[in-house]
Design a binder for these strands. Structure first.
Lengths: 223, 223
DNA sequence: TGTTAATTGTACGAACTGGTTCAATTGGTC
DNA sequence: GACCAATTGAACCAGTTCGTACAATTAACA
Protein backbone atom coordinates (compact mmCIF):
# COMPACT_ATOMS: atom_id res chain seq x y z
CA UNK A 1 0.00 0.00 0.00
CA UNK A 2 2.72 2.47 -0.66
CA UNK A 3 1.08 4.03 -3.67
CA UNK A 4 -2.01 6.05 -3.30
CA UNK A 5 -2.15 7.70 -6.68
CA UNK A 6 -5.90 7.89 -7.04
CA UNK A 7 -6.81 6.46 -10.40
CA UNK A 8 -3.57 4.73 -11.14
CA UNK A 9 -3.68 1.05 -10.43
CA UNK A 10 -0.43 -0.80 -10.01
CA UNK A 11 0.74 -4.33 -10.40
CA UNK A 12 4.10 -5.70 -9.53
CA UNK A 13 7.45 -3.99 -9.48
CA UNK A 14 6.13 -0.56 -8.73
CA UNK A 15 3.04 -0.93 -10.86
CA UNK A 16 -0.03 0.96 -10.17
CA UNK A 17 -2.35 -0.42 -7.56
CA UNK A 18 -4.98 -2.39 -9.09
CA UNK A 19 -8.40 -1.97 -10.23
CA UNK A 20 -8.68 -2.82 -13.82
CA UNK A 21 -11.09 -4.79 -15.86
CA UNK A 22 -10.00 -7.73 -17.85
CA UNK A 23 -10.78 -6.96 -21.43
CA UNK A 24 -8.63 -8.82 -23.92
CA UNK A 25 -10.75 -7.82 -26.90
CA UNK A 26 -10.76 -4.21 -25.86
CA UNK A 27 -7.00 -4.17 -25.47
CA UNK A 28 -6.54 -5.86 -28.82
CA UNK A 29 -8.85 -3.40 -30.52
CA UNK A 30 -7.12 -0.48 -28.91
CA UNK A 31 -3.69 -1.68 -30.05
CA UNK A 32 -4.97 -2.42 -33.53
CA UNK A 33 -6.52 0.99 -33.92
CA UNK A 34 -3.35 2.78 -32.88
CA UNK A 35 -1.19 0.47 -34.98
CA UNK A 36 -3.35 1.01 -38.03
CA UNK A 37 -2.96 4.77 -37.75
CA UNK A 38 0.82 4.44 -37.43
CA UNK A 39 1.29 1.96 -40.25
CA UNK A 40 -0.98 3.99 -42.49
CA UNK A 41 0.95 7.12 -41.74
CA UNK A 42 4.50 5.77 -41.80
CA UNK A 43 4.45 2.47 -43.60
CA UNK A 44 5.71 -0.82 -42.22
CA UNK A 45 9.38 0.11 -41.90
CA UNK A 46 8.57 3.71 -40.99
CA UNK A 47 6.29 2.87 -38.08
CA UNK A 48 7.90 2.55 -34.65
CA UNK A 49 6.78 -0.02 -32.13
CA UNK A 50 7.63 2.26 -29.23
CA UNK A 51 5.55 5.01 -30.76
CA UNK A 52 2.61 2.69 -31.19
CA UNK A 53 2.98 1.50 -27.62
CA UNK A 54 3.10 5.04 -26.31
CA UNK A 55 -0.15 5.97 -28.02
CA UNK A 56 -1.85 2.86 -26.72
CA UNK A 57 -3.73 2.79 -23.45
CA UNK A 58 -1.59 -0.22 -22.59
CA UNK A 59 2.10 -1.02 -22.98
CA UNK A 60 4.60 -2.43 -25.43
CA UNK A 61 4.53 -5.55 -23.34
CA UNK A 62 0.96 -6.27 -24.42
CA UNK A 63 1.69 -5.70 -28.08
CA UNK A 64 4.18 -8.53 -28.02
CA UNK A 65 1.90 -10.54 -25.78
CA UNK A 66 -0.88 -10.46 -28.33
CA UNK A 67 0.82 -10.04 -31.69
CA UNK A 68 4.23 -11.60 -31.30
CA UNK A 69 6.21 -9.09 -33.25
CA UNK A 70 5.96 -6.04 -35.47
CA UNK A 71 5.06 -8.00 -38.56
CA UNK A 72 2.44 -9.95 -36.68
CA UNK A 73 0.87 -6.69 -35.65
CA UNK A 74 1.02 -5.37 -39.18
CA UNK A 75 -0.56 -8.55 -40.50
CA UNK A 76 -3.37 -8.26 -37.99
CA UNK A 77 -4.02 -4.67 -39.09
CA UNK A 78 -4.07 -5.79 -42.70
CA UNK A 79 -6.46 -8.62 -42.03
CA UNK A 80 -8.82 -6.39 -40.14
CA UNK A 81 -8.80 -3.90 -42.99
CA UNK A 82 -9.65 -6.51 -45.56
CA UNK A 83 -12.37 -7.93 -43.34
CA UNK A 84 -13.95 -4.51 -43.32
CA UNK A 85 -14.07 -4.03 -47.03
CA UNK A 86 -15.41 -7.52 -47.40
CA UNK A 87 -18.21 -6.64 -45.03
CA UNK A 88 -18.90 -3.56 -47.06
CA UNK A 89 -19.11 -5.55 -50.25
CA UNK A 90 -21.44 -8.07 -48.73
CA UNK A 91 -23.71 -5.29 -47.59
CA UNK A 92 -24.44 -4.36 -51.18
CA UNK A 93 -27.57 -5.79 -52.68
CA UNK A 94 -27.44 -4.94 -56.33
CA UNK A 95 -29.28 -7.94 -57.70
CA UNK A 96 -32.57 -6.15 -57.26
CA UNK A 97 -31.59 -3.19 -59.44
CA UNK A 98 -31.72 -2.97 -63.21
CA UNK A 99 -28.26 -3.50 -64.73
CA UNK A 100 -27.30 0.07 -65.49
CA UNK A 101 -28.43 1.28 -62.10
CA UNK A 102 -26.72 -1.65 -60.43
CA UNK A 103 -23.38 -0.85 -62.03
CA UNK A 104 -23.76 2.86 -61.39
CA UNK A 105 -24.53 2.16 -57.75
CA UNK A 106 -21.60 -0.19 -57.40
CA UNK A 107 -19.24 2.34 -58.97
CA UNK A 108 -20.60 5.11 -56.75
CA UNK A 109 -20.30 3.07 -53.57
CA UNK A 110 -16.83 1.90 -54.47
CA UNK A 111 -15.75 5.46 -55.17
CA UNK A 112 -17.20 6.62 -51.87
CA UNK A 113 -15.67 3.80 -49.91
CA UNK A 114 -12.21 4.74 -51.15
CA UNK A 115 -12.71 8.44 -50.66
CA UNK A 116 -14.08 7.91 -47.16
CA UNK A 117 -11.39 5.44 -46.13
CA UNK A 118 -8.02 6.81 -47.15
CA UNK A 119 -6.55 4.59 -44.45
CA UNK A 120 -7.57 1.56 -46.44
CA UNK A 121 -6.09 2.99 -49.60
CA UNK A 122 -2.82 3.88 -47.96
CA UNK A 123 -2.47 0.50 -46.34
CA UNK A 124 -3.00 -1.19 -49.68
CA UNK A 125 -0.28 1.05 -51.09
CA UNK A 126 2.08 0.07 -48.31
CA UNK A 127 1.30 -3.58 -48.86
CA UNK A 128 1.95 -3.25 -52.58
CA UNK A 129 5.30 -1.63 -51.93
CA UNK A 130 6.07 -4.83 -50.06
CA UNK A 131 4.87 -6.87 -53.03
CA UNK A 132 1.85 -8.04 -51.06
CA UNK A 133 4.03 -10.53 -49.29
CA UNK A 134 1.98 -10.25 -46.09
CA UNK A 135 -1.28 -10.80 -47.92
CA UNK A 136 0.32 -13.91 -49.24
CA UNK A 137 1.21 -15.15 -45.79
CA UNK A 138 -2.21 -14.41 -44.43
CA UNK A 139 -4.44 -17.39 -44.98
CA UNK A 140 -7.44 -15.41 -43.83
CA UNK A 141 -7.49 -13.35 -46.98
CA UNK A 142 -7.98 -14.83 -50.38
CA UNK A 143 -11.05 -16.78 -51.18
CA UNK A 144 -13.12 -14.00 -49.71
CA UNK A 145 -12.59 -11.40 -52.31
CA UNK A 146 -13.95 -13.00 -55.37
CA UNK A 147 -17.40 -11.90 -54.35
CA UNK A 148 -17.12 -8.56 -56.14
CA UNK A 149 -16.17 -10.25 -59.36
CA UNK A 150 -19.12 -12.58 -59.07
CA UNK A 151 -21.37 -9.65 -58.38
CA UNK A 152 -20.14 -7.81 -61.42
CA UNK A 153 -20.43 -10.91 -63.56
CA UNK A 154 -24.04 -11.37 -62.57
CA UNK A 155 -24.94 -7.78 -63.31
CA UNK A 156 -23.03 -7.76 -66.56
CA UNK A 157 -24.63 -10.98 -67.82
CA UNK A 158 -28.03 -9.65 -66.97
CA UNK A 159 -27.39 -6.38 -68.75
CA UNK A 160 -25.93 -8.14 -71.74
CA UNK A 161 -28.94 -10.39 -72.14
CA UNK A 162 -31.22 -7.39 -71.90
CA UNK A 163 -29.18 -5.58 -74.51
CA UNK A 164 -28.19 -2.80 -72.16
CA UNK A 165 -24.50 -3.77 -72.21
CA UNK A 166 -22.29 -4.68 -75.11
CA UNK A 167 -20.76 -8.09 -75.66
CA UNK A 168 -17.31 -9.39 -74.90
CA UNK A 169 -16.33 -7.68 -71.65
CA UNK A 170 -14.45 -9.32 -68.84
CA UNK A 171 -15.83 -8.87 -65.30
CA UNK A 172 -12.31 -8.48 -63.97
CA UNK A 173 -11.65 -5.74 -66.49
CA UNK A 174 -14.77 -3.93 -65.37
CA UNK A 175 -13.71 -4.27 -61.76
CA UNK A 176 -10.22 -2.99 -62.50
CA UNK A 177 -11.64 0.07 -64.18
CA UNK A 178 -13.93 0.88 -61.28
CA UNK A 179 -11.15 0.27 -58.76
CA UNK A 180 -8.53 2.23 -60.64
CA UNK A 181 -10.80 5.25 -60.97
CA UNK A 182 -11.72 5.06 -57.29
CA UNK A 183 -8.26 4.35 -55.95
CA UNK A 184 -6.06 6.75 -57.85
CA UNK A 185 -7.62 9.99 -56.61
CA UNK A 186 -6.98 8.95 -53.06
CA UNK A 187 -3.65 7.16 -53.40
CA UNK A 188 -2.08 9.89 -55.51
CA UNK A 189 -3.83 12.82 -53.95
CA UNK A 190 -0.64 14.35 -52.60
CA UNK A 191 1.35 14.20 -55.83
CA UNK A 192 -1.62 15.38 -57.89
CA UNK A 193 -1.93 18.38 -55.64
CA UNK A 194 1.79 19.03 -55.81
CA UNK A 195 2.15 18.68 -59.55
CA UNK A 196 -1.15 20.07 -60.81
CA UNK A 197 -2.23 22.22 -57.90
CA UNK A 198 -5.47 20.30 -57.90
CA UNK A 199 -6.85 19.00 -54.60
CA UNK A 200 -8.92 15.90 -55.13
CA UNK A 201 -10.01 16.02 -51.52
CA UNK A 202 -11.91 19.26 -51.92
CA UNK A 203 -15.66 18.61 -51.86
CA UNK A 204 -16.35 20.05 -55.30
CA UNK A 205 -13.53 18.21 -57.00
CA UNK A 206 -14.48 14.99 -55.33
CA UNK A 207 -18.09 15.21 -56.45
CA UNK A 208 -17.16 16.02 -60.02
CA UNK A 209 -14.73 13.16 -60.11
CA UNK A 210 -17.33 10.84 -58.68
CA UNK A 211 -19.82 11.72 -61.40
CA UNK A 212 -17.13 11.38 -64.04
CA UNK A 213 -16.17 7.94 -62.74
CA UNK A 214 -19.72 6.61 -62.84
CA UNK A 215 -20.23 8.10 -66.26
CA UNK A 216 -17.02 6.59 -67.59
CA UNK A 217 -17.93 3.14 -66.30
CA UNK A 218 -21.39 3.33 -67.82
CA UNK A 219 -19.97 4.41 -71.16
CA UNK A 220 -17.49 1.56 -71.00
CA UNK A 221 -20.35 -0.91 -70.75
CA UNK A 222 -22.89 0.77 -72.99
CA UNK A 223 -23.93 -1.11 -76.08
CA UNK B 1 56.68 11.99 -40.61
CA UNK B 2 54.03 10.57 -38.38
CA UNK B 3 52.89 8.12 -41.03
CA UNK B 4 55.05 5.08 -41.07
CA UNK B 5 53.02 2.75 -43.19
CA UNK B 6 55.85 0.81 -44.76
CA UNK B 7 56.39 1.32 -48.41
CA UNK B 8 52.96 1.08 -49.80
CA UNK B 9 51.89 3.94 -51.92
CA UNK B 10 48.69 4.57 -50.06
CA UNK B 11 46.34 7.30 -49.31
CA UNK B 12 45.19 7.89 -45.86
CA UNK B 13 44.09 5.11 -43.60
CA UNK B 14 45.32 2.40 -45.89
CA UNK B 15 43.83 3.10 -49.29
CA UNK B 16 44.79 1.31 -52.42
CA UNK B 17 47.48 2.66 -54.60
CA UNK B 18 46.07 5.01 -56.98
CA UNK B 19 45.13 5.07 -60.54
CA UNK B 20 41.63 6.25 -61.10
CA UNK B 21 39.87 8.53 -63.46
CA UNK B 22 38.12 11.59 -62.24
CA UNK B 23 34.51 11.30 -63.24
CA UNK B 24 32.14 13.22 -61.01
CA UNK B 25 29.14 12.75 -63.30
CA UNK B 26 29.79 9.06 -63.61
CA UNK B 27 30.02 8.63 -59.87
CA UNK B 28 26.85 10.62 -59.37
CA UNK B 29 24.99 8.59 -61.93
CA UNK B 30 26.23 5.35 -60.45
CA UNK B 31 25.08 6.34 -56.98
CA UNK B 32 21.76 7.57 -58.29
CA UNK B 33 21.06 4.37 -60.18
CA UNK B 34 21.79 2.19 -57.17
CA UNK B 35 19.84 4.49 -54.86
CA UNK B 36 16.85 4.49 -57.16
CA UNK B 37 16.71 0.71 -57.13
CA UNK B 38 16.93 0.63 -53.35
CA UNK B 39 14.35 3.35 -52.71
CA UNK B 40 12.01 1.81 -55.25
CA UNK B 41 12.35 -1.57 -53.62
CA UNK B 42 12.29 -0.58 -49.96
CA UNK B 43 10.84 2.88 -49.71
CA UNK B 44 12.50 5.88 -48.10
CA UNK B 45 12.55 4.55 -44.54
CA UNK B 46 13.14 0.99 -45.66
CA UNK B 47 16.21 1.74 -47.76
CA UNK B 48 19.59 1.53 -46.03
CA UNK B 49 22.39 3.92 -46.80
CA UNK B 50 25.01 1.27 -46.08
CA UNK B 51 23.30 -1.10 -48.46
CA UNK B 52 23.22 1.53 -51.18
CA UNK B 53 26.88 2.31 -50.58
CA UNK B 54 27.82 -1.36 -50.76
CA UNK B 55 26.16 -1.77 -54.15
CA UNK B 56 27.86 1.31 -55.49
CA UNK B 57 31.18 1.24 -57.23
CA UNK B 58 32.26 3.92 -54.78
CA UNK B 59 31.81 4.41 -51.04
CA UNK B 60 29.40 5.84 -48.49
CA UNK B 61 31.80 8.68 -48.21
CA UNK B 62 30.96 9.86 -51.73
CA UNK B 63 27.23 9.61 -51.17
CA UNK B 64 27.49 12.17 -48.43
CA UNK B 65 30.01 14.13 -50.42
CA UNK B 66 27.57 14.58 -53.28
CA UNK B 67 24.13 14.38 -51.74
CA UNK B 68 24.54 15.56 -48.17
CA UNK B 69 22.24 13.08 -46.50
CA UNK B 70 19.76 10.31 -47.12
CA UNK B 71 16.91 12.66 -47.91
CA UNK B 72 19.07 14.64 -50.27
CA UNK B 73 19.84 11.46 -52.13
CA UNK B 74 16.19 10.52 -52.21
CA UNK B 75 15.25 13.95 -53.50
CA UNK B 76 17.84 13.67 -56.25
CA UNK B 77 16.41 10.31 -57.29
CA UNK B 78 12.95 11.81 -57.33
CA UNK B 79 14.01 14.77 -59.40
CA UNK B 80 15.76 12.60 -61.92
CA UNK B 81 12.67 10.43 -62.23
CA UNK B 82 10.42 13.38 -62.90
CA UNK B 83 12.87 14.83 -65.37
CA UNK B 84 12.63 11.60 -67.31
CA UNK B 85 8.87 11.54 -67.60
CA UNK B 86 8.91 15.17 -68.58
CA UNK B 87 11.30 14.32 -71.39
CA UNK B 88 8.98 11.57 -72.44
CA UNK B 89 6.03 13.89 -72.53
CA UNK B 90 7.91 16.47 -74.54
CA UNK B 91 8.84 13.84 -77.05
CA UNK B 92 5.20 13.36 -77.99
CA UNK B 93 3.99 15.25 -80.98
CA UNK B 94 0.27 14.80 -81.06
CA UNK B 95 -0.71 18.08 -82.61
CA UNK B 96 -0.32 16.59 -86.07
CA UNK B 97 -2.81 13.79 -85.46
CA UNK B 98 -6.59 13.98 -85.73
CA UNK B 99 -8.19 14.33 -82.29
CA UNK B 100 -9.34 10.77 -81.72
CA UNK B 101 -6.04 9.33 -82.85
CA UNK B 102 -4.15 11.87 -80.81
CA UNK B 103 -5.96 10.91 -77.62
CA UNK B 104 -5.69 7.21 -78.37
CA UNK B 105 -1.97 7.62 -78.96
CA UNK B 106 -1.50 9.60 -75.79
CA UNK B 107 -3.41 7.02 -73.75
CA UNK B 108 -1.44 4.18 -75.32
CA UNK B 109 1.92 5.84 -74.72
CA UNK B 110 1.00 6.73 -71.16
CA UNK B 111 -0.11 3.18 -70.49
CA UNK B 112 3.12 1.82 -71.95
CA UNK B 113 5.29 4.26 -70.07
CA UNK B 114 3.82 3.12 -66.76
CA UNK B 115 3.95 -0.56 -67.64
CA UNK B 116 7.54 -0.26 -68.84
CA UNK B 117 8.70 1.80 -65.89
CA UNK B 118 7.41 0.22 -62.71
CA UNK B 119 10.25 1.99 -60.91
CA UNK B 120 8.63 5.29 -61.68
CA UNK B 121 5.27 4.06 -60.46
CA UNK B 122 6.65 2.67 -57.24
CA UNK B 123 8.62 5.81 -56.51
CA UNK B 124 5.48 7.89 -56.95
CA UNK B 125 3.74 5.56 -54.52
CA UNK B 126 6.52 5.99 -52.00
CA UNK B 127 6.36 9.73 -52.40
CA UNK B 128 2.61 9.73 -51.89
CA UNK B 129 2.97 7.70 -48.72
CA UNK B 130 5.11 10.61 -47.57
CA UNK B 131 2.42 13.06 -48.62
CA UNK B 132 4.60 14.31 -51.48
CA UNK B 133 6.55 16.37 -48.99
CA UNK B 134 9.76 15.98 -50.97
CA UNK B 135 8.13 17.03 -54.20
CA UNK B 136 7.08 20.09 -52.31
CA UNK B 137 10.61 20.87 -51.20
CA UNK B 138 12.02 20.35 -54.63
CA UNK B 139 11.88 23.55 -56.57
CA UNK B 140 12.96 21.76 -59.71
CA UNK B 141 9.62 20.08 -60.06
CA UNK B 142 6.41 21.95 -60.50
CA UNK B 143 6.00 24.29 -63.38
CA UNK B 144 7.23 21.55 -65.68
CA UNK B 145 4.32 19.23 -65.46
CA UNK B 146 1.51 21.29 -66.76
CA UNK B 147 2.54 20.44 -70.28
CA UNK B 148 0.42 17.29 -70.42
CA UNK B 149 -2.66 19.19 -69.39
CA UNK B 150 -2.01 21.79 -72.07
CA UNK B 151 -1.52 19.04 -74.59
CA UNK B 152 -4.78 17.42 -73.67
CA UNK B 153 -6.58 20.73 -73.68
CA UNK B 154 -5.40 21.45 -77.18
CA UNK B 155 -6.48 18.06 -78.48
CA UNK B 156 -9.78 18.19 -76.69
CA UNK B 157 -10.66 21.67 -77.98
CA UNK B 158 -9.79 20.63 -81.48
CA UNK B 159 -11.93 17.51 -81.24
CA UNK B 160 -14.78 19.39 -79.68
CA UNK B 161 -14.82 21.97 -82.46
CA UNK B 162 -14.79 19.22 -85.04
CA UNK B 163 -17.66 17.50 -83.30
CA UNK B 164 -15.64 14.38 -82.51
CA UNK B 165 -15.73 14.99 -78.77
CA UNK B 166 -18.63 15.96 -76.55
CA UNK B 167 -18.91 19.25 -74.68
CA UNK B 168 -18.14 20.10 -71.10
CA UNK B 169 -15.13 17.99 -70.21
CA UNK B 170 -12.24 19.13 -68.08
CA UNK B 171 -8.71 18.44 -69.38
CA UNK B 172 -7.58 17.55 -65.88
CA UNK B 173 -10.39 15.04 -65.60
CA UNK B 174 -9.32 13.46 -68.85
CA UNK B 175 -5.75 13.29 -67.65
CA UNK B 176 -6.75 11.75 -64.34
CA UNK B 177 -8.69 9.05 -66.12
CA UNK B 178 -5.79 8.16 -68.38
CA UNK B 179 -3.33 8.24 -65.49
CA UNK B 180 -5.52 6.22 -63.15
CA UNK B 181 -6.05 3.50 -65.73
CA UNK B 182 -2.34 3.40 -66.51
CA UNK B 183 -1.08 3.60 -62.95
CA UNK B 184 -3.30 1.22 -61.08
CA UNK B 185 -2.34 -1.96 -62.92
CA UNK B 186 1.27 -1.37 -62.07
CA UNK B 187 0.97 0.09 -58.59
CA UNK B 188 -1.45 -2.56 -57.38
CA UNK B 189 -0.14 -5.44 -59.37
CA UNK B 190 0.93 -7.41 -56.31
CA UNK B 191 -2.35 -7.12 -54.43
CA UNK B 192 -4.40 -7.78 -57.55
CA UNK B 193 -2.47 -10.95 -58.10
CA UNK B 194 -2.85 -11.96 -54.49
CA UNK B 195 -6.54 -11.23 -54.22
CA UNK B 196 -7.79 -12.14 -57.67
CA UNK B 197 -5.10 -14.48 -58.87
CA UNK B 198 -4.75 -12.25 -61.90
CA UNK B 199 -1.28 -11.18 -63.03
CA UNK B 200 -1.40 -7.83 -64.78
CA UNK B 201 2.20 -8.24 -65.77
CA UNK B 202 1.56 -11.20 -68.01
CA UNK B 203 1.84 -10.20 -71.67
CA UNK B 204 -1.70 -11.18 -72.62
CA UNK B 205 -3.32 -9.46 -69.65
CA UNK B 206 -1.29 -6.36 -70.24
CA UNK B 207 -2.28 -6.09 -73.89
CA UNK B 208 -5.94 -6.62 -73.15
CA UNK B 209 -5.84 -4.01 -70.43
CA UNK B 210 -4.08 -1.61 -72.75
CA UNK B 211 -6.76 -1.96 -75.38
CA UNK B 212 -9.46 -1.60 -72.75
CA UNK B 213 -7.86 1.56 -71.40
CA UNK B 214 -7.69 3.25 -74.79
CA UNK B 215 -11.22 2.19 -75.55
CA UNK B 216 -12.51 3.49 -72.24
CA UNK B 217 -10.84 6.85 -72.76
CA UNK B 218 -12.22 7.20 -76.26
CA UNK B 219 -15.71 6.34 -75.06
CA UNK B 220 -15.37 8.87 -72.29
CA UNK B 221 -14.75 11.58 -74.87
CA UNK B 222 -17.05 10.42 -77.64
CA UNK B 223 -19.87 12.71 -78.56
C1' DT C 1 -10.04 -22.22 -3.32
C1' DG C 2 -7.14 -22.96 -6.87
C1' DT C 3 -5.67 -22.23 -11.49
C1' DT C 4 -4.87 -19.72 -15.53
C1' DA C 5 -5.02 -15.80 -18.48
C1' DA C 6 -4.62 -10.90 -18.42
C1' DT C 7 -2.09 -7.13 -16.95
C1' DT C 8 1.26 -3.78 -15.09
C1' DG C 9 6.07 -1.06 -15.80
C1' DT C 10 10.62 -0.65 -16.49
C1' DA C 11 14.99 -1.37 -17.69
C1' DC C 12 18.02 -3.31 -20.63
C1' DG C 13 20.69 -5.21 -24.55
C1' DA C 14 22.29 -6.37 -28.97
C1' DA C 15 22.02 -5.07 -33.48
C1' DC C 16 21.37 -1.58 -36.61
C1' DT C 17 21.75 2.98 -38.82
C1' DG C 18 22.60 7.59 -40.35
C1' DG C 19 26.30 10.36 -40.47
C1' DT C 20 31.23 11.97 -39.28
C1' DT C 21 36.20 11.90 -38.67
C1' DC C 22 40.75 11.09 -39.95
C1' DA C 23 44.50 11.48 -43.22
C1' DA C 24 46.37 11.30 -47.50
C1' DT C 25 46.59 11.01 -52.69
C1' DT C 26 45.53 11.96 -57.41
C1' DG C 27 43.47 14.31 -61.54
C1' DG C 28 42.78 18.22 -64.12
C1' DT C 29 43.35 23.06 -65.04
C1' DC C 30 45.38 27.56 -65.14
C1' DG D 1 54.11 24.18 -60.08
C1' DA D 2 50.14 25.57 -57.59
C1' DC D 3 45.68 24.74 -56.38
C1' DC D 4 41.27 22.78 -55.75
C1' DA D 5 37.99 19.25 -56.58
C1' DA D 6 37.60 14.39 -56.66
C1' DT D 7 38.56 10.27 -54.42
C1' DT D 8 40.02 6.59 -51.28
C1' DG D 9 38.86 3.33 -46.88
C1' DA D 10 37.80 2.18 -42.60
C1' DA D 11 36.95 3.03 -38.06
C1' DC D 12 33.92 5.05 -35.09
C1' DC D 13 29.94 7.34 -32.63
C1' DA D 14 25.69 8.51 -30.82
C1' DG D 15 21.06 7.58 -31.15
C1' DT D 16 17.55 4.44 -32.40
C1' DT D 17 14.82 0.27 -32.48
C1' DC D 18 13.04 -4.28 -31.93
C1' DG D 19 12.42 -7.44 -28.73
C1' DT D 20 13.08 -9.62 -23.93
C1' DA D 21 13.77 -10.36 -18.94
C1' DC D 22 12.09 -9.62 -14.65
C1' DA D 23 8.74 -9.75 -10.98
C1' DA D 24 4.46 -9.31 -9.19
C1' DT D 25 -0.77 -8.73 -9.05
C1' DT D 26 -5.44 -9.26 -10.28
C1' DA D 27 -9.70 -10.93 -12.85
C1' DA D 28 -12.42 -14.56 -14.03
C1' DC D 29 -14.10 -18.99 -13.80
C1' DA D 30 -14.72 -23.66 -12.27
Amino acid sequence: MEEMTPAKPRGAGGRKAASWTQDPEGVRRNILAVARAEFVENGLSGARVDEIAAKTSTSKRMIYYYFGDKEGLYRAVLEEMYARIRNFERSLDLAVLPPREAIATLAGFTFDYHADNPDFVRLVMVENIHHARHLENSAKIGELNLSVIDMIREIYERGRREGAFREGLDPIDIHLTISALSFYNVSNRASIRQVFGHDMGAPGARERRRASTIDTVLRMLAS
